[in-house]
Write a protein that binds this DNA or RNA. Structure first.
Lengths: 153, 153
DNA sequence: CCATCAATTTAGACATATTCTAAATATAGA
DNA sequence: TCTATATTTAGAATATGTCTAAATTGATGG
């Protein structure tokens, strides 16, 4: 794996976005963190050592980064939006029980499976959101099953 | 297509959820409406004729219905959550330009494509979220294209 | 190095969305 | 009917997100 800082620099370069200290800190935190943080968590983390970003700046940067495709807002059960660095494509898994959002390796949909459903719409990207029991929750409740069986995928 | 009221009755029955007047009205509205309404829109619609549901009740019922799987919270770019009746499985399409959320016909993932990505996680369900230009927006900007081409799916 | 311009940041006020609370009401089952 | 539980309610309280106007920063050209 290449060094994170180099990867972030490349991402800013490719997106043609000024890597200001605050904006960089937001993306860096999202790239390092596993938790798909809320704006508030990002605010706290970025300012942990040294208060140097206001709330408005966190929101401003989340928007500019999202617009550039470097971060993604992920489906959040609660009310606060959760954000995810989007440096590499990936799918998501959300635990029904504990709500954790996990990244899954990317795989393409096989060619042709979605064409009919999409009709004539122009497609720019897609992601699959899986739900079920995460490994941690499954361990504590090994016999839990989906109410209706889901086809093997 | 069977009558909606019968379908709603069956859904409540299957979910073992009391079909109170207010709860029924929320699900009925979501099932009829195409707009993936916010809590506030549901509140306004349900009370249009006759004020008979408070905001708290709308939220309470959205939660109980979501927990039972009869409605789904769909990814909302803005801040107010949007809800969708989930009586039949379907995927979603979100327009990059106008933000509209459209339902797409369901299709299964081909067997085996996701197994490796899921690891040992227990799967209860999944959905695919596609993004791009809806038919209406495409019509007004026919030459728009994805910046990086997306594989045909 | 300086002047200039546009982008960014900031604090805090503001607006909106959601949850909570405690009392009232409705419903199912005995 | 009686009882226990679930649901509903209005409004207060909280959480989340946006806006504003002034200050700061960084890039560019002279």
């Amino acid at each position: 794996m290449s060094k994170l800082s180099a990867e972030l620099d490349r991402a800013f370069e490719a997106a043609d976005l000024r890597p200001t200290a605050q904006r960089y800190a937001v993306l860096e935190y999202l790239a390092k963190s596993e938790i798909h943080a809320t704006a508030d968590e990002i605010f706290a983390a970025v300012n942990f050592n040294d208060p140097r970003a206001s709330r408005a700046t966190i929101y401003n940067n989340l928007r500019s980064l999202a617009k550039a495709g470097l971060v993604r807002e992920v489906s959040s059960e609660g009310k606060a939006a959760r954000y995810d660095a989007n440096l590499h494509p990936h799918h998501h898994f959300i635990c029904d029980k504990c709500g954790v959002v996990e990244d899954l390796c990317w795989f393409d949909l096989p060619e042709g499976v979605a064409g009919a459903a999409l009709g004539g719409r122009r497609l720019s990207n897609y992601e699959i959101v899986f739900r079920g029991g995460c490994l941690r929750c499954r361990k504590s409740h090994p016999i839990t099953r989906a109410r209706r069986p889901v086809q093997n995928v």
